[in-house]
Amino acid sequence: MPQNFRLRFDGAVAARELRSAAARGLFLGVEHVLGLSNDVVPLDEGYLQSTGTASVDEPSLTGMVSFDGPYAVRQHEELTWRHAPGRTAKYLENSLNSAGPEVAALIAAELRRALR
């Protein structure tokens, strides 16, 4: 028996939902990177760790992780300084480089969820 189907597709709504899902996934990704960075950020009194933030600019789909302490850049770049065990310079860069697959998976999961 032949069957007839009618499909009404609104591309603008689909694009809007997918962009929103991508932004949610990106936010989860930058939160993940922030968590990894917090695990290795140089720690003396915990001030630098407390300045870490994660945010997403939804219109441009740009994720940001930053540490805003007055010495954050110097701690990040100074490879000769000694740190407590498990803490290191390049705390943000190394965390970001190692988290690529996980961030991509978080974004993909949100996109799949939106397509259901």
Rank of each mutant, 00 (worst) to 15 (best):
D44A: 03
E78A: 15
R113D: 08
A21P: 03
R87S: 00
V13K: 04
A109E: 15
M1V: 09
G69R: 06
L18A: 14
A104E: 14
L106K: 11
N38W: 00
H32R: 14
T88W: 02
S55C: 01
G29D: 09
D57T: 12
A105W: 05
T80S: 14
A84N: 06
Y71L: 10
A14K: 01
S55T: 14
V56A: 06
R113G: 03
A84K: 15
D57Q: 10
S20C: 03
L26H: 06
R116I: 10
P70Q: 11
R112M: 04
R24D: 13
V56G: 03
V103C: 08
R82I: 07
P59V: 09
F67L: 05
L36K: 15
V73E: 09
R19P: 01
A21K: 02
E17P: 00
V33I: 15
N4I: 04
W81S: 06
A99D: 13
R82M: 08
Y47W: 09
L92N: 00
N94L: 06
T53K: 14
R16L: 13
V30M: 15
Y71E: 09
A114W: 06
Y91W: 15
A15H: 08
R87P: 02
A99F: 04
R87T: 03
H76W: 04
I107Q: 02
V41L: 03
L111Q: 07
A14Q: 05
Q49D: 12
K90F: 02
V40F: 05
E93V: 07
A54G: 14
A22P: 02
D10F: 10
R6Q: 13
G69Q: 07
S50Y: 06
V56Y: 03
P85G: 00
L61Q: 05
F67P: 01
Q49W: 01
N97Q: 14
P59M: 10
V41I: 15
G100L: 07
L43T: 13
A21M: 08
A84W: 06
A84F: 05
V103R: 13
R19T: 12
L36N: 12
Q3I: 11
T80A: 14
A72I: 08
F5Y: 14
L48Q: 06
G100V: 13
L61R: 02
V103K: 11
R24I: 02
E17N: 12
V41Y: 02
L115E: 13
S37L: 03
R82H: 10
N94F: 01
L36Y: 05
N97Y: 04
P70K: 11
R6F: 04
R8D: 08
E31W: 00
S37E: 07
V56Q: 04
R82A: 10
L36H: 11
H83E: 05
L7P: 00
Q3E: 13
P42Q: 08
Q75R: 14
G100T: 12
L34A: 15
H32Y: 14
T80L: 14
A89Y: 01
